[in-house]
């Protein structure tokens, strides 16, 4: 299973990450950060769809996304 972590105080809500996600799970949240930007997030229910491709992190101009990946074990789907 993979997941991303958005550093919310750095996110400027440009939403470029939402355009490159191959599984379309990144959306704009209803939360504002301290700078007044509506931050990007992956809803809890969708996080297991993340494939850890790091496209969102590659395009993030504020380097606000960390990507974690768990190596697949033999026998896992």
């Amino acid at each position: 299973m993979s997941r991303i972590e958005v550093q919310e105080d750095r996110c400027k809500g440009c939403l470029l990450c939402t355009t490159v996600c191959p599984v379309n799970i990144i959306v704009q949240s209803e939360r504002f950060n301290v700078s007044g930007y509506k931050v990007a997030e992956v809803p809890e229910a969708d996080m297991d769809k993340c494939i850890g491709c790091a496209s969102c992190a590659m395009i993030c101009p504020d380097v606000a996304i960390k990507v974690y990946k768990t190596p697949k074990k033999k026998g896992d789907n």
């Binding site: 400027k12 440009c14 590659m58 993030c60 101009p61």
Partner: peptide, 27 residues
């Protein structure tokens, strides 16, 4: 077993930039 596969490079200082949202200078 989780591995951090993408993070800020060491040479980039951990600080918010003054650039506008969506500016490509950050990339």
């Amino acid at each position: 077993n989780e591995k951090l596969v993408f993070d800020k490079p060491e040479s980039v200082i951990d600080r918010a930039t003054h650039y506008c949202p969506g500016c490509h200078h950050g990339i």
